[in-house]
Write a protein that binds this DNA or RNA. Structure first.
Lengths: 151, 151
DNA sequence: TTTTTCTAAGACCGGATTGTCTTAAATTAA
DNA sequence: TTAATTTAAGACAATCCGGTCTTAGAAAAA
């Protein structure tokens, strides 16, 4: 798995918050969000706390409370969220896990992976919450988990 | 982590086997290999068993036994090894983990991730054990874990 | 045949990640 | 002030992966 589950939940939740705060001012309830995105409430809360302490979100307790973007949606990138939750390892580590791998001592796939990794970085960096939610609305893209089916 | 540790160990071991069987005929001892690559013997054994049951290696018990490539080194790609150990998920799954994501119902990063994923796939597919070991020798590339330092 | 050298196979443990639950604290509304 | 709503925080359980260990079994050598 390239991104941890916590990280993908963090991205989906951030997109949800962006769309909701477009509609109405104020905070978005974590309880309501967890229901609509089909993510465990307590797990989602923990993830959003990480984004809050990273300075990407603010929160408010009590009735009418919830979370909101701390910065403008055009100033938060998906890269910010990935780094806040999963850290920088994805963009710095050797694909084969060789500790000293670098330009001086490259491994067998160092150059290829370096290029791919850079594209991944630029992809996350170029997508802000604003542009991504706009894209979602225009192209009717998916950004939520489906309800789990009972089997 | 893009590849599991088991998968990277499988790649490193396969490259080692290719280089050793270049020198002498017959089988490569797992015990000796685990020492030189600094990988746990029993863990390496488990990984090599997966590669054996996937048809990439053969094994022989007893003295002078060990493992060997079942096919020619130019017919085994790094992709074969990745798929044998980690499966196809890396090359098929949605980056955001949305179950139904595809061309009909794309997620917000579907197209970008699709392109990157394809490059990753082609990189692994284009590198055979033969070409990669040749590259390692010519360019003096790293393909083994360093000995762990006592601290 | 017996011993030694190996791989085969699977039980087992520890730590990280994922996910659940409970309690506390803050804020609003009545 | 009191009650209701909501996040904060942390304990806790379950699951998966990485790694270790033990026993079995096969093949070669003595």
């Amino acid at each position: 798995m390239v991104l941890s589950k916590a990280c993908t939940y963090g991205i989906l939740a951030s997109l949800y918050i962006t769309r909701e705060t477009n509609k109405k001012t104020g905070y978005v309830s974590i309880g309501r969000m967890s229901k609509e995105l089909h993510i465990s409430f307590h797990f989602l809360t923990k993830i959003l706390q990480e984004l809050t302490s990273a300075g990407l979100l603010t929160s408010m307790k009590g009735p009418k409370g919830g979370v909101a973007l701390k910065q403008d949606a055009k100033d938060i990138t998906l890269l910010d969220i990935v780094i806040a939750i999963d850290g920088m390892e994805l963009f710095s580590e050797c694909l084969l896990g060789l500790p000293g791998c670098g330009n001086e001592e490259p491994c067998a796939v160092h150059n290829e992976w370096g290029g791919i990794r850079e594209q991944l970085y630029q992809t996350f960096r170029s997508k802000t919450l604003a542009t991504t939610t706009q894209q979602i609305d225009e192209q009717n893209l998916r950004f939520a988990l489906p309800e789990l089916l009972d089997s």
